[in-house]
Amino acid sequence: MPQCDWRVRGLMLVWIGFTLLVTGFVWIVPIEVFQQWAFDRAGQGQFERFEAVGSAEFSVWLSRIACLAAIFVSGIVWWNLDRWANFAAETWAGLRAVTLSSSASNNSTSRSLVGRLRTLGGRALLIVWGVLFVVHFANGIRERIHEWPYFRFNSGDVVLPNISDSNRAVIRYLREATPENARILVASDQKLFFLSYYLRPRVLLHRMHPESEHVIPLKDQERKLNAYRLEDLSPHDLEQMPHDYTLEYFEHPDFVERGRLLEDRGWIEFMRRREQNPTLIPPYVVRLRPVEGTRP
């Protein structure tokens, strides 16, 4: 077996020394130092600072694990450097051999040119595939760093991202209060796309007001969406939508009747337990009722 070049050994020593220094730095310096550094450089918004602190935490732990892995792999390579160097040389030679192409043309000059072009094209494709892998891997890590403050080790079904806090609370309450095969008739001034998605396999039945079908809602109920109340639905509407639960869910002040905020005791207990506030009165109406004769 050929001996490894001394320059390769020198480069390996430099790499191992550098990795040890970086590992010592990221493990000795407290995470709070990195979080404070990120916090000071974030914008003035609450969410920007929250993301900066969470992303810094994830980045530090990722760096710590990556550095330990790099030291472990580098140590294995160092102790078997001659064998790894020979393996790398054979792999490179084999890769060049399998990507070498020739042409079936009778003309020797043409055969040589076409074969060379095919060889260069195949190797170029391999390089492009390698670059794409690196780019997608780096982008995946970047996205994971950005999403870590919100998701951590949880799935989207647990976190319920990109929806309002009120929608999120209603979804979690309905998951707790209704079985998975429930059919829920909803009267609401809200767009129920996210509720329908995250409450699957439950079925939500909602008669949307025609004036609200193509209206885009704004945050904090800045734009009122016209809606039907339960009493506005005709017997024909109810017959078309067989259901075993009714849900009234209104957020806009014009629909919120203060005297009905405490009607659903299950909802009130859920919110007070969730917010750890025994006197909490939610600012929007949620009233879930089973239909008599369909549920125990």
Rank of each mutant, 00 (worst) to 15 (best):
L262H: 09
M271Q: 14
T279D: 15
M12V: 12
A124F: 12
V73W: 06
E239K: 15
R123Y: 06
L238C: 05
L125V: 13
R207V: 13
C67A: 15
A93V: 05
E57W: 11
Y245S: 04
L225Y: 11
L280V: 00
H236I: 07
W79S: 10
G130Y: 00
G75K: 08
M208R: 10
P179K: 10
P2F: 11
E239A: 15
F47S: 03
L288T: 01
F72Y: 05
Q36W: 11
W6A: 08
A97E: 12
M1Q: 10
R265T: 13
D189G: 10
Q190E: 09
T99S: 06
Q44F: 07
S101Q: 10
L247V: 02
F250N: 02
P210V: 11
E251D: 11
Q46F: 08
E57R: 14
Y245D: 00
P2A: 12
A52W: 10
W61H: 12
P282T: 14
I216W: 14
F47A: 07
A227L: 04
P30F: 15
I71Y: 07
V158A: 09
E231R: 15
L62W: 11
A169D: 11
Q240Y: 02
H206R: 01
D40W: 15
Y284E: 05
S234E: 01
N154W: 04
Q240H: 03
R272G: 01
R229D: 03
V33M: 07
S55P: 01
G43S: 03
A138W: 05
H243G: 03
F133N: 03
D237M: 14
F18R: 02
T99I: 09
L174Q: 02
T23K: 03
G115S: 04
T119V: 10
D157Y: 15
Q46Y: 12
Y197W: 04
V186H: 08
P282D: 12
D82L: 05
T91Q: 06
L261Q: 03
F47W: 13
F34H: 10
V291C: 05
K224C: 07
D237A: 14
L117E: 01
E51T: 09
F50V: 02
V215T: 12
I216H: 06
H243C: 08
L247Y: 09
L125K: 02
T119K: 07
A104E: 08
R295L: 06
E147W: 15
Y198H: 06
E239T: 04
L81Y: 11
A97F: 15
D189E: 05
D237F: 14
T23Y: 07
L95S: 10
T246M: 08
L185N: 04
T279Q: 02
D40F: 14
L199W: 07
R207C: 01
R295E: 06
G122F: 02
E251Y: 00
L195W: 13
I141K: 00
G17H: 04
R200I: 08
L247M: 06
I76E: 12
R83Y: 13
V8F: 11
V256N: 11
